[in-house]
Write a protein that binds this DNA or RNA. Structure first.
Lengths: 128, 128
DNA sequence: TTGATATTCAATCAGACGGTTGACTAAGAG
DNA sequence: CTCTTAGTCAACCGTCTGATTGAATATCAA
């Protein structure tokens, strides 16, 4: 029974643990990459790998528990959809250290401009 | 003997594995947080935790292997210094999904301006 | 109904992980 | 030299992890 002291330190966040742990595996990172833009079935997700479908299924469960993937089952198949929301906290965490990449600051600003942001609306995000 | 297919996929990066794995533990995240700005000794790093110094030392070794911390020993003590360089790749990776946080885009732009950037370099290529 | 397909569950296994205690090396302090 | 301090090394332990194989559960097709 470890005394947890929850909330005392914002970094002691189990959700963040799960997100970073989920991202620490190359298979899961590839899964997330493939789910960027399209929702796929387990079978489709498993196809490129030479590990068993069960292993991929377990990887997906890890992603689900991290909140990065949602599965909606319809009939026999289970369509997996990306939910990048929990990754935001992780991004905030690592970006706190962006000051140390000042050299690559241009590159850092680059994805801000290059990542799907077709035109910079000068005002107002177009809230979906 | 797994055929690795190294380089075929940029996401299959063991360095990235180690960085994300290092970040997946709250103790190590707190260590990194405390090393942000000042270099500390192992003893000083271990003080706030109620785990043994050896355990903290092992955590530091994990950070060192991930390239996030460098240790320079002078005499008896070992001063630990943050090296956020390897975190940059991790930041690039998660930031690829920033388009999904469009709602929090303001916050995302916030750390760009608000994160410890007290005085920008006077020559400062910040002409957007 | 029969059979193939999609996915998960269950048991198992080797190895990594996070923690402990105890011993060790090496450097300062007396 | 002796004692203490800083840090790591080594062995151990319980749990988690990533993978396997085999069985179970549903769903769809014939």
């Amino acid at each position: 029974m470890v005394d947890r002291q929850r909330g005392a330190d914002a970094d002691n966040d189990e959700a963040l643990d799960r997100v970073f742990a989920a991202l620490s595996d190359p298979v899961r990172r590839r899964l997330l990459s493939r789910l960027d833009g399209e929702a796929l079935l387990v079978k489709e997700l498993a196809a490129p790998f030479n590990i068993s479908v069960q292993a991929v299924s377990k990887h997906i469960q890890v992603l689900v528990k991290a909140g990065l993937v949602r599965q909606e089952r319809s009939g026999r198949v289970s369509r997996c959809r990306l939910d990048a929301g929990p990754m935001y906290e992780a991004a905030l965490w690592v970006n706190r250290y962006s000051k140390y990449w000042q050299d690559q600051f241009d590159t850092l600003a680059l994805w801000l401009g290059a990542a799907e942001r077709p035109k910079r609306k000068r005002n107002s995000r177009r809230q979906s």
